[in-house]
């Protein structure tokens, strides 16, 4: 296999990078880890004229807590950076765990959180848990920057609201009232498998009552999605096994999976039921795991 020819640029600042992107428009692509991009290019699905590498833009690296904003994750942080981040381990182990169950170690060492989001693959593992935790993304363009909820970022498979001159620079997980969160991935192999379904939840429990719940599903619709009806169904109600099962059934009814080589629509729907219930139970009982 081979990569088509392209021009390679490795600017030293975000501003410069955005200017290059603005100049080339859709003929340019951002290169972060490349674990997905290289494969798409080898398959001939993408043939950009220019790759703009983020490797020299140091402000995109790093994960830290910023008072008033929350946990700020640089877009170039690799999956293993997430897994090993002390801040995340302390506050949202669920994010570390979601990153840990992606792909395999070699890919986790190179693939980035920014890439995982911007590629907008419906089965991506990080978006559901980040959406459940209310995360926002910061997009920097040639003419300024904007921040928006991750939930409104995706518009379809491989599609999002990002402009051709924009770079996703940060992911921000705001301070939570939630008491627990988790991501459960159901894949057909324990390593190196895409999610057949992925279910993330964040719950706020007090006195045995679900004050608030967010349920985000992956791999069961064109974009990562919230199961809002299921959330509504359980909001404010006392936690029981029956309630959580009902939430699962409801979430299964809300999603719209396709049938493909990894699973039928029917199977995926039922797995949404099972894993929504299990994820809720885990987050309720164990906190952010």
């Amino acid at each position: 296999m081979y990569l088509p020819d392209f021009d390679y640029q490795s600017p030293g600042s975000l501003k410069e990078a955005c200017q290059i992107l603005a100049a080339f428009g859709s003929r340019a692509r951002v290169l972060a880890g490349g674990t997905d991009l290289m494969i798409k290019m080898k398959h001939g699905l993408l043939a950009p004229d220019v790759l703009v590498s983020l490797k020299n833009i140091s402000q995109l690296a790093g994960i830290g807590y910023v008072q008033g904003r929350g946990v700020v994750i640089g877009a170039r942080a690799t999956h293993n950076d997430l897994v090993n981040s002390p801040v995340l381990q302390k506050k949202y182990l669920s994010v570390c765990e979601a990153a840990h169950h992606m792909a395999n170690n070699q890919i986790r060492n190179v693939g980035t959180v920014g890439g995982n989001i911007v590629n907008a693959v419906p089965s991506a593992d990080l978006p559901p848990i980040l959406i459940a935790l209310n995360a926002a993304v910061k997009l920097v363009g040639a003419d300024g920057e904007r921040e928006l909820p991750l939930e409104s970022f995706f518009t379809g498979p491989n599609r999002s609201v990002i402009g051709t001159d924009e770079i996703l620079s940060e992911i921000v997980i705001p301070d939570q009232t939630s008491t627990g969160s988790t991501y459960m991935k159901f894949g057909l192999r324990r390593s190196g498998a895409l999610a057949v379904v992925g279910v993330a939840v964040a719950v706020t429990v007090a006195g045995g009552v679900l004050k608030e719940a967010k349920i985000a599903l992956g791999a069961v619709s064109p974009t990562p999605m919230r199961a809002v009806k299921a959330e509504e169904l359980i909001r404010g109600r006392a936690v029981t096994d029956e309630l959580l099962e009902e939430a699962g059934v409801c979430a299964a009814g809300e999603c719209s999976p396709i049938s493909d080589i990894r699973g039928s629509k029917e199977y995926r729907q039922d797995m949404v039921r099972v894993f929504t219930r299990r994820a809720l139970r885990r987050a309720i009982n164990e906190g952010h795991v």
């Binding site: 395999n104 057909l188 192999r189 324990r190 390593s191 190196g192 498998a193 895409l194 080589i261 990894r262």
Partner: peptide
């Protein structure tokens, strides 16, 4: 062939 690669033709890994 829909799965002519080692990602979707799933031979067991060490954890399986």
């Amino acid at each position: 062939i829909l799965n002519g690669n080692l990602g979707e033709y799933r031979m067991p890994t060490a954890v399986d």
